[in-house]
């Protein structure tokens, strides 16, 4: 690739003078910081979901919000795939899982199906090898119109009867589904450990936040 063209192109990408001036002011007093929870949305009408509240002791949402939630928080489910993390001050972060849902591996008519960019019957592969690995790209759209491509990595181990499937999305969130003795359980792992499959290091130089596990269940 033409390195000169690359340099000419990206040298036209500048932070605004206003942002630079602002940071000089921000250092004087961080209370003037315009930092916000990027993409965080205020969610109304969650009262009906209050009965589904699960108090979570781990700090996963602290990680997810870069420490913005410094105290305990509560997870309020507002749908099969949507939840709100709410701290004691009433601040909320609204999250929605991917359209294809948390259950990216399901048992259907005795077959084990991986729901990725297409449906894949992994029963035979798991029987033969005891593991199955799949990577695919997902276009993720934000409400503000942003789009980006994420590489999702799925690893399934075990047998078609008892298995563990983990889906890592490349930005520090891993969802694990385990099927054991006919019971299905799910975990979300947020933070550096969730990125291990990519070989990511811990965030030592940004203040180092440990990974946390949120155990959850969907409402009946």
């Amino acid at each position: 690739m033409d390195r000169m063209l690359f340099h000419e192109t990206f040298s036209q990408l500048h932070a605004s003078d206003g942002a630079k001036q602002e940071v000089l002011q921000m250092k004087e007093n961080r209370k003037h910081s315009r930092r916000r929870l990027a993409g965080a949305a205020r969610v109304a009408g969650i009262a009906a979901a209050a009965m589904m509240a699960l108090v979570v002791t781990a700090g996963a949402i602290n990680v997810a919000t870069d420490g913005a939630f410094l105290e305990g928080f509560t997870i309020l489910w507002v749908g099969d795939k949507e939840f709100v993390a709410q701290n004691e001050a009433g601040d909320e972060v609204y999250m929605v899982s991917a359209d294809d849902g948390i259950d990216f591996v399901t048992e259907e008519d005795g077959r084990l199906i991986l729901h990725a960019d297409r449906e894949i019957d992994i029963t035979d592969a798991l029987t033969e090898n005891g593991s199955y690995h799949y990577e695919y790209e997902v276009t993720v759209s934000s409400e503000d119109g942003r789009e980006d491509t994420e590489v999702f990595i799925v690893d399934v181990t075990g047998s078609p009867e008892e298995w563990t499937a983990t889906q890592r999305n490349g930005i520090g969130v891993a969802v694990t589904i385990t099927s054991e003795n006919g019971e299905v359980s799910r975990d979300i792992l947020v933070g550096a450990e969730a990125m291990d499959a990519e070989g990511a290091a811990t965030d030592m130089e940004s203040g180092g936040k440990s990974a946390s596990v949120v155990e959850y269940q969907t409402a009946e």
Binding site: L37, A38, G39, A40, V63, A64, T65, D66, A68, V93, Y94, M95, V96, S97, A98, D99, V140, S141, S142, E143, G145, R146, E147, N169, I171, G172, V173, V190, D203, S206
Partner: peptide, 14 residues
């Protein structure tokens, strides 16, 4: 990465 985590998979119609 922290910024992206806080907008975790907000997957809606663009």
């Amino acid at each position: 990465k922290s910024t992206l985590r806080s907008t975790w998979l907000r997957r809606t119609v663009p």
